[in-house]
Design a protein around this nucleic acid. Sequence first.
DNA 1: TCAAGAAATGAACCATGGTTCACGCCCCCC
DNA 2: GGGGGGCGTGAACCATGGTTCATTTCTTGA
Lengths: 218, 218
Amino acid sequence: MAYRQTDKVSARLADTRRSILDAARDLVSEGGFAAAQVSEVARRAGVATGTIYRYFSSKEELCRQIFREVSSQEMGLLATIASGDEPARTRLVKVLRTFAGRAVKGRRLAYALLAEPVDANLAEERAFFRRTHAEIFSRILEDGIEAGELPPMNAKIAAACIAGAIPTALIGPLAPQSQDLDKDPERIVDEIVAFCLAGVGVAQPDRKARKIERRATV
Amino acid sequence: MAYRQTDKVSARLADTRRSILDAARDLVSEGGFAAAQVSEVARRAGVATGTIYRYFSSKEELCRQIFREVSSQEMGLLATIASGDEPARTRLVKVLRTFAGRAVKGRRLAYALLAEPVDANLAEERAFFRRTHAEIFSRILEDGIEAGELPPMNAKIAAACIAGAIPTALIGPLAPQSQDLDKDPERIVDEIVAFCLAGVGVAQPDRKARKIERRATV
DNA sequence: TCAAGAAATGAACCATGGTTCACGCCCCCC
DNA sequence: GGGGGGCGTGAACCATGGTTCATTTCTTGA
């Protein structure tokens, strides 16, 4: 025996792994998963193509990691708001505004996570991500129905509608022009959230009330 | 000069073209665009692979044709309802129920048209399709707002929300189990349409009224 | 310093699936 | 019926992009 991994080395390995993940994530948030070609990731991370395969068994696994890292961060944010002890309607407004607001800010990334064409394996990961969204929405709705804050409805279906409406109205061919989104994102987010709230039977607050609630979100 | 295309020949050519298109469309509605590989289309149509290229300059063009044929049929259906002279709210209900109803019935095809990963060129075609949908919705909404049947809102954004909510709630990972959709499609369609109507400020009709309107849709 | 083994390398490899093309056949007109 | 095409064929070709692996370059303990 003449070689055993020392701390210094394993730290360097961890660094390399990290820099590969970072490179991949950057590429994804710039140009979607399509831009994250193995050789390009390697170039960015400053390693050889083959090196990627010492850290990830396949491109698919690398992409999956990226997906998990990014999406779990987003979901954590929403889950925290959702599990607060405020009234359901308040939590609902905050969650929707946060979801929409973050999608606007990180449009390219949101596109990659929610809408970009990906292959079957990544699609699974995405399905999980979206289902978690829907579950967060639907749990709040159920709370609200139980508490009499919201009218009775099929919460799962309403949640799916919300999870479809918000990204569609913000990303992709039905979204407003990108420049308009940058110019006045709040107005557009307001409008979309208003649609969803009305959809689940929340009477619209007037503009002044809206402004107050707005402060409470990311 | 010793050859000029005769009627018999051009009829045969048209037939072949048609059978290629049919084969491709069948494959798409069975397994999405992914299943429509050139060699497979050729096999189904009973011609050689190379023959496809005597009728279509590329696979992309073939797919585009399929897309147009199928989607223009769907859009025509909606456009007809939309341009009727009934009150905006009635037209809206009919259009939404038709859109949702057809998506449920032809789920695989709807998936291919609306959600399946496709490459950039087909994505353009899809964008057109979806924009047309949104335009149909938004025109009705504008009519309704103008007539005082609907509250003021940004019709374009609301239309995008609708165009996102309905497919998301019916197709893909957030849709109910396929067997549940088959068991009682109407109930689910009702629920989704109710969400969208509420979203644009239409007070919910009670169940009896709904049943009457239901008869009026495809 | 040296041997043993891990880590890194990147050019070659391979799988997939669209596209081409040299050839044979059929159709038209003289 | 013969010649000048267009039409049909399908095996070969090619482009893309992920994956491998023989080789080289560290690292480590003796």
